[in-house]
Design a protein around this nucleic acid. Structure first.
Lengths: 131, 131
DNA sequence: CGGCATCCCCACAGATACTG
DNA sequence: CAGTATCTGTGGGGATGCCG
């Protein structure tokens, strides 16, 4: 009777979940991860580094479209999150090698699962977007 | 606009002299999907709708922090990509039901794989960010 | 070679108010 | 209940230039 707590009897026969369901608790770290790796370039770099190690300019050429600024920012971000390791070889000229850490490599697995889904279903998304 | 492999081919350019690296071809749809579902709210909504169907204000309360504008935009985006279905029940007051489409439900699987990873490893990210 | 510093822009998140 | 309309700020991201 009170308008503050509207029941929807037909849709939900049993108990309505609490206002803050565990889904949010479960989804919140996901959100964190997505915010971290879901930007324009990060997972692109992660996937590349999943194949082999890259040097800075190698990545710059491989991604092709990324600016130096964004590549650096992306790598630094992944590095501070422990997903990517940065190894400086004190040669001349300097050489910097980027690798996936074990943590980064573990991310690669669910990421490639999503990648497979994307490759498989992205046409559907594009098709659905037409209509 | 996907700047990732935007070639901006000039009209006279008939063939690509250099093949685009396959890593980019493989990663590009992933990027599309991430750009679509990797925003602040989309996958939160997808995960919620993976449990059951929701009505508009139910979602508004469940997400709790999202504005009406953002919820609407998120739902519209997911809808136009064929991930979410919107069913209007012509009652009074109006009632709108949101569900995952089969396509959306198929996304749920790799998404929850990533979600599991996130729940498991997000502490590591946070810990790594300290140092 | 492998960056960092700076300037700038615009797309998009968020709040607020109003409507069928 | 389920949205639209409008305004505004923030920051992601590109371009350019310089440096160890």
């Amino acid at each position: 009777m009170s308008a503050t707590h509207t029941r929807v009897p037909s849709l939900v026969e049993h108990q309505l979940p609490q206002p803050v369901p565990q889904a949010e608790l479960a989804a919140c770290p996901v959100n964190e991860v997505f915010r971290r790796v879901g930007d324009k370039w990060s997972m692109l770099v992660v996937i590349l580094l999943g194949k082999r190690s890259y040097r800075y300019n190698e990545l710059h050429r491989a991604v092709e479209g990324i600016s130096q600024r964004m590549l650096t920012r992306t790598l630094r971000g992944l590095e501070t999150d422990g997903l990517v390791s940065r190894t400086v070889h004190p040669t001349v000229p300097p050489s910097v090698e980027y690798d996936l850490t074990p943590l980064g490599r573990s991310l690669l697995e669910p990421l490639s699962a999503l990648a497979d889904w994307a490759v498989k279903h992205e046409p559907h998304l594009a098709a659905a977007r037409e209509s």
